[in-house]
């Protein structure tokens, strides 16, 4: 147990060291980095303007108010930002496998998963996290509830769960490259793009679409269920408590896929 804990601590330490190196190389191109940040903020402002304009015409969408939809948006953006800023490496995995560069990852005395996760930094994520967080805080002030430390802790748990689900989806679908073996596997991007459905209350979709984003690719637990829970705990208590469980489930599945895949990795040779 103590040994496992030590290796976990070492893994986290090395992850941040590797990520730090990657960040330095990006900061060298300062103009690029600023352009990316501004672009990420612009995308969010445009999204916000879109729902803002819609709500000038109608009071609510099936009972969901402006600030509730803003919170769903903000959760999608923050979790996307966390994925880009800290775990961009998952997008690199298919290339590592295809090109045979994964050999290098295998021979180093550091957890392969740590190396993959820390191998890239997407600085646009910072813009997403900052503006997304601002939107989240503002939308939370429109919840008619007396905030207690426990309540705020639950918001934090829901946020971390949402980010975990998205990173796990990225990692799990990227790990399919161990089987697919093509230079650019499209599965992760396909799944990632389904996030579009997470920006709106799931009640607007047909049963089929709802089934997909609740059961198969659980984006509903990233944005909709956390929002419903925070705004209306009486009716959505179950959804709130299920969210962390779904996150754990996704993470375990992703890690299993990654480990299974690694076992069947054979180098493409150089």
């Amino acid at each position: 147990m103590a040994a496992r804990l030590r290796s976990l601590r070492r893994g986290i330490y090395l992850y941040f060291r590797l990520l730090g190196q990657e960040m330095k190389s990006i900061l060298a191109y300062r103009a690029d980095f600023i352009v990316l940040l501004i672009a990420a903020v612009l995308v969010q402002l445009v999204g916000l303007a879109f729902i803002g304009i819609i709500f000038t015409r109608i009071p609510n969408i099936q009972g969901w108010t402006f600030w509730q939809v803003v919170m769903m948006y903000s959760l999608i953006f923050i979790t996307e930002g966390v994925g880009s800023l800290f775990f961009e490496g998952t997008w690199w995995l298919s290339w590592l496998i295809y090109s045979g560069e994964f050999d290098q990852v295998m021979v180093r005395p550091v957890s392969p998963m740590v190396q993959v996760l820390a191998s890239k930094v997407g600085f646009n994520g910072l813009g997403n996290i900052v503006t997304g967080s601002l939107l989240l805080v503002v939308s939370l002030t429109h919840v008619s509830v007396n905030w207690t430390p426990v309540g705020l802790l639950m918001v934090l748990i829901l946020l971390v769960s949402g980010a975990t689900i998205r990173v796990a989806l990225n990692l799990g679908t990227a790990a399919l490259s161990f089987w697919i073996k093509s230079p650019h596997s499209n599965v992760p991007m396909f799944v990632h793009q389904l996030g579009e459905f997470g920006k709106y209350p799931i009640t607007i979709y047909s049963v089929g679409v709802q089934a997909v984003i609740v059961l198969v690719i659980p984006f509903a637990f990233v944005s909709f269920y956390p929002t419903a829970y925070v705004f209306d705990q009486a009716n959505w208590a179950l959804a709130g408590w299920l969210t962390p469980l779904v996150a754990i489930y996704c993470l375990v599945m992703a890690a299993t896929l990654f480990r299974r895949g690694m076992r069947r990795y054979e180098s493409s040779g150089n």
Partner: peptide, 24 residues
């Protein structure tokens, strides 16, 4: 003048999507 073309493209698309009337 810049190598940050990803950011430029994303920013242009965002502005274009709103002001072209593509979103609303």
């Amino acid at each position: 003048w810049t190598t940050g073309m990803v950011g430029i493209r994303v920013g242009r698309t965002a502005i274009q999507n709103l002001l072209s009337g593509a979103m609303i």
